[in-house]
Design a protein around this nucleic acid. Sequence first.
DNA 1: GGATGTTCGAATGTTGACATTTCGACAACC
DNA 2: GGTTGTCGAAATGTCAACATTCGAACATCC
Lengths: 257, 257
Amino acid sequence: MWYRDPGDASPVPVYDVHFCVVAHDDGKNSGMRRVRRRGLAHEAADHIRESIFDGRAAPGSALREVELAASLDVSRGSVREGLAILEREGLVRSEWHRGARVIELSPSDVNEVYTVRAALERLATISAAARMNAARLADLESLVQAMGRALEGDADGSTLLALDMAFHDRIYETAANGRLTDAWHGVRSQVRLFQLIRIERDQVDYRDRLVPEHHDLLRLMSRGPSEELARAAEEHVDSARRTLVHLLERDPDHPRS
Amino acid sequence: MWYRDPGDASPVPVYDVHFCVVAHDDGKNSGMRRVRRRGLAHEAADHIRESIFDGRAAPGSALREVELAASLDVSRGSVREGLAILEREGLVRSEWHRGARVIELSPSDVNEVYTVRAALERLATISAAARMNAARLADLESLVQAMGRALEGDADGSTLLALDMAFHDRIYETAANGRLTDAWHGVRSQVRLFQLIRIERDQVDYRDRLVPEHHDLLRLMSRGPSEELARAAEEHVDSARRTLVHLLERDPDHPRS
DNA sequence: GGATGTTCGAATGTTGACATTTCGACAACC
DNA sequence: GGTTGTCGAAATGTCAACATTCGAACATCC
């Protein structure tokens, strides 16, 4: 028996099953690798997260448990747990008996997030370089090439952003440090939010630097760990920080398209 | 009306009120600063955390929600939320429909935790140095002096550890970067667990290095940010890592006293 | 008029009951 | 003998109802 009525558009059991294909295996892996079940809390978190990135949930707006529970068709408990997940990611702030709100982004937040990110990326890049091999290198290289193709094809911002994030995710994956990945996930969603703003309001700079900077990182990583690589990783993040602070100070309110 | 029966030993309302005295104000602040209410989830998390540090909950042992709910006299929901808090701190691992367990500590975990900690501490120390002032310096100095007194008085390990942790907490506080503090809290409890092991099984080395290393950090911080300071902070953490890996590889099982 | 106390509604915090999944033991089969 | 299938207990995931808190509008008092 299921919790939800099967009369829904998609008559799947509520305890949803997620088939996660390992996206970047060596080509020898013929199909699915592991099956993960996550529960409604993660499902709810995904929906809410998406609505924040979409702009449907504006920064500062309240995320009421009953509303969300009704709109997502799950109980308040699951919504509550989902909101806790988003709070861990820094997308949401909640206070005692005052509910949860979408975070608001100020220049000082940019500094906080990107300063921490620089420290993490420094470690991740060096750790990844120490564990680099041909397959991983080729994988990263294909991502950079995809960036190039996307730029020539005049792809929209979200495509570029997805490739950008994927590149860095792979680095953390290669670093193979669970605690480091956890720390990254603590700022990742915020970084994505900021990069979204950056792409919206700075069409030129981002597109000019996307391929060269990532290509440089890749080249340095292929030569193993070095202080030069660490510096490059920090600078890659810090230049993004400077750009964002500049953008936000010029025009604090962000009119979404 | 209260949820709990007032017949308890401490007849306080369940929605407990916590008076947080700012512990290290400049002496001019006469008393309490802010009142925080946290809810039962945090309360439950505190209890469980303590039982992990005490050794009552051994590494790898299951933390059953019903048991904890009964023993803490709260509902399963609150225990559940508390366990989620501890999972955020890395003290607990939980899997879908398989419950939560106290983490087990292997040498590879030491490497993960202390590598990340080194990266965070590097940033925190430099940020703190940039915001250092006389009052904060004096505060840190008094902590180092307290360490010295504790050593001469042959204090037990937990006292030394508390001072050690307090020293580093103050650094993060001085850095005044919320995201950095969050990341630190993601490994802090694990660091504390490891340091507990270190103190238990290495009475000499830790006590010898406690004061000199912290004094060095303090001296360098007082001169403002520098690459030398960054290196010292990293090395301070990395030497702890090396010691712990050594200890754990010699004697993987830790017989608690 | 302005500050203070009160009341009320809307939201969250908490709880216990129910549905689902997991994992072991045991039996049946090849 | 080893593998496979079934059953059941024990645990977690989920839900809906209740208790508590917060904030603001209103009335009251100086």
